[in-house]
Design a protein around this nucleic acid. Structure first.
Lengths: 134, 134
DNA sequence: ACCATATTGATAATCGTTCGCAAGTAGGAA
DNA sequence: TTCCTACTTGCGAACGATTATCAATATGGT
């Protein structure tokens, strides 16, 4: 239910061995991989793929709106498939694990605050950093 | 009412010409300068100061908790004096201007969400990106 | 199958930031 | 004050993530 290859074709992108490999690697990723991780994983489908191709492709996918790029502060950008449902991230400081969450009140409040300051909200970034309770 | 030089002395840091220059530059900054901007501004007080010294000093000040480092997504880290009052940032996409705001409900909600997910909130990052209304 | 165009791999370049090192201070002891 | 030692500095090299360059290769419409 997330056929990235099909979405790329729909977007008019030509489909190459390298791209297919990256798209499969991304679809099989449950976490939020960075470019190096994606490169490693994509090698399973295309052993000769180059890092530069991964970077180029991720940039392309981001521009096409098929992928979201995040910066969780560890130097490397992290990627995930663009989802329809809005969500934010909580980073477990003990493990580095990233947890997705959604809160309607929070969404409303962000828009409300921007409005109060005289702005239309175009984008936002919310990351919570925490340690397991107790 | 924000004598950074005194705070540094209180923290046991030795006070050099270069550090004094950086601290003055920072105190006189109403915006959220990056390392390059601080370097330029510090030159007014110490014309021979090096970029590396600015980077080193900002890292030190951050470790001492006297300065906060932000990444607003433009490649360069931005700095501001650590304030007692918690605040978040709204970035005006039309001008690049950064507006600080505080919202009690929002603070509470962030803690509440972390708790609901089973975490104690240790840190967080919220940035709103908007354009002036209308 | 053919060809113009887009894409690739390999490598150099870029940009912010950090490191290594010799020379130069700060600031406490004498 | 003068000395001394550890901390700082300025400079330039090094670094890590990402992007650009470019010749060679694949794509997909014809």
């Amino acid at each position: 239910m997330s056929d990235l290859i099909q979405k790329c074709l729909d977007a008019g992108l030509s489909m190459t061995t390298a791209r297919r490999a990256i798209l499969r690697a991304l679809e099989n990723s449950e976490d939020h991989p960075d470019a190096l991780m994606l490169h490693d994983r994509a090698k399973a489908y295309d052993p000769t793929i180059a890092q530069a191709t991964v970077y180029r492709t991720m940039r392309l996918l981001e521009q096409e709106g098929l992928v979201e790029k995040h910066d969780f502060g560890n130097g490397r950008a992290r990627y995930e498939e663009a989802e329809k449902e809005q969500h934010d991230h909580l980073i477990n400081l003990s493990t580095g694990e990233i947890i997705e969450f959604h809160d309607t009140d929070l969404e409303a409040l962000k828009i409300e605050i921007a409005k109060r300051l005289g702005f239309d909200l175009k984008d936002h970034r919310l990351e919570l950093y925490g340690v397991p309770r107790e």
